[in-house]
Simulated assay, not measured.
Amino acid sequence: MPTVAIAIFPGVQALDVAGPVDVFSEANGFIAPAQHYEVKLLAADPAPLRASNGMTLMADATFDEAREPFDLALVAGGPALPTKEVPDARLLDWLANVATRCARYGSICTGAFALGRAGLLDARHVTTHWQHAAQLAAEFPRAQVEFDRIYLRDGPLVTSAGVTAGIDLSLALVAEDHGPQTALAVAKRLVVFAQRQGGQSQFSPYLTAPADDTSPAAKVQAHVMARIHDSFTVKQLADVAGMSARNFARVFVQETGVTPHEFVERARVDAARKLLESSGAALKTIAYDCGFGTADRMRIVFTKRLGVTPMQYRERFRQA
């Protein structure tokens, strides 16, 4: 009987815990009893603890009591984990220890920060919630953080994006253990997709404001977004900034982290997303108004950037 351990702590995200638990529990209804998953919640202390939403959770055992090998060990995330406040040392010690004795170990959502502080992310490809991916990459520069993945496996290490992505990861592990048909059956029971199309980018905003809203980069960004249907060259944008093209391109990357071309394309995608969500305009109209020129070009960019077509995006996010 495969054993699954999920580490919890005060302030844990309840859905990071409940989602995977329900996947493995439902999977038990489709597999032989000898293959049933046995899931245990582990915490530093035996007392009940409060999740971030106020729900009370009770661990099955403490970290000190659960030193045996597990087939899978996961640490859930929590809204406070990305802060510089170091998690309970007992959690980090347990993670570092159990990772050496598990076939698979990893994290849900911001649980990746606990893995990093336990020294388990170096030279690994990992992901986390889109809001905190840049922070994870900055705090653990030896990790290869992939910003757009719903879940990711690198050898024995598995990580997932935010919150409900723990369900996607767990379904993938069930498929790995018992085949895609079993994972599909579980997904149908839970009324979720067995394999979500696209990555996290379809949920996250592409554009971030520069730190100094009076800077040349901010001036150019405002110019582009106010005239999103126009075509732009680096020379034209440099003229708006009052700089030479060469100097402008260098300064823009320094201030924004992307090239002018990259910014323009991201701005077009964000503008199109807003129209797809809020209007019933034809795709060719949105493509023209947002500077793509044609619906085919917009589809190519959406597929590259978001992993879904404009029509698929509209079907998922269109406001009633």
Score class of each variant (00 low, 15 high):
residue 24 F to G: 04
residue 99 A to K: 09
residue 259 T to L: 11
residue 141 P to N: 11
residue 214 T to H: 13
residue 233 T to H: 10
residue 10 P to E: 07
residue 176 E to I: 01
residue 148 D to Y: 04
residue 287 A to D: 04
residue 187 A to D: 03
residue 280 G to D: 14
residue 31 I to E: 01
residue 115 L to V: 11
residue 242 G to Q: 11
residue 175 A to I: 02
residue 4 V to D: 08
residue 289 D to L: 12
residue 15 L to A: 09
residue 177 D to C: 01
residue 176 E to P: 00
residue 104 R to Q: 12
residue 88 D to S: 12
residue 218 A to T: 05
residue 164 T to D: 01
residue 253 V to G: 00
residue 265 E to C: 06
residue 314 R to P: 03
residue 92 L to K: 08
residue 85 E to K: 14
residue 5 A to C: 06
residue 311 M to E: 13
residue 137 A to L: 04
residue 65 E to S: 11
residue 120 L to M: 07
residue 249 A to F: 00
residue 133 A to T: 08
residue 249 A to W: 02
residue 85 E to D: 13
residue 29 G to F: 11
residue 272 A to M: 04
residue 109 C to D: 10
residue 80 A to H: 13
residue 254 Q to C: 00
residue 37 Y to M: 04
residue 77 G to D: 05
residue 188 K to H: 12
residue 185 A to Q: 14
residue 101 R to P: 04
residue 119 G to A: 06
residue 166 G to A: 08
residue 82 P to A: 10
residue 300 I to C: 01
residue 187 A to K: 09
residue 189 R to Q: 08
residue 184 L to Q: 15
residue 10 P to M: 09
residue 137 A to H: 07
residue 240 V to P: 12
residue 2 P to F: 00
residue 264 V to G: 10
residue 230 D to W: 14
residue 16 D to F: 11
residue 269 V to I: 15
residue 152 L to R: 14
residue 215 S to A: 13
residue 222 A to G: 14
residue 122 D to L: 01
residue 135 Q to C: 02
residue 87 P to D: 07
residue 178 H to F: 15
residue 186 V to T: 06
residue 94 W to I: 10
residue 309 T to D: 00
residue 255 E to R: 15
residue 118 A to E: 09
residue 270 D to G: 12
residue 298 M to V: 10
residue 283 L to E: 08
residue 314 R to L: 02
residue 299 R to E: 15
residue 300 I to F: 07
residue 42 L to C: 07
residue 138 A to G: 10
residue 234 V to H: 10
residue 180 P to L: 04
residue 69 P to W: 03
residue 182 T to G: 04
residue 149 R to H: 12
residue 158 V to F: 07
residue 77 G to M: 10
residue 270 D to W: 02
residue 18 A to C: 05
residue 277 E to Y: 02
residue 2 P to S: 02
residue 171 L to H: 08
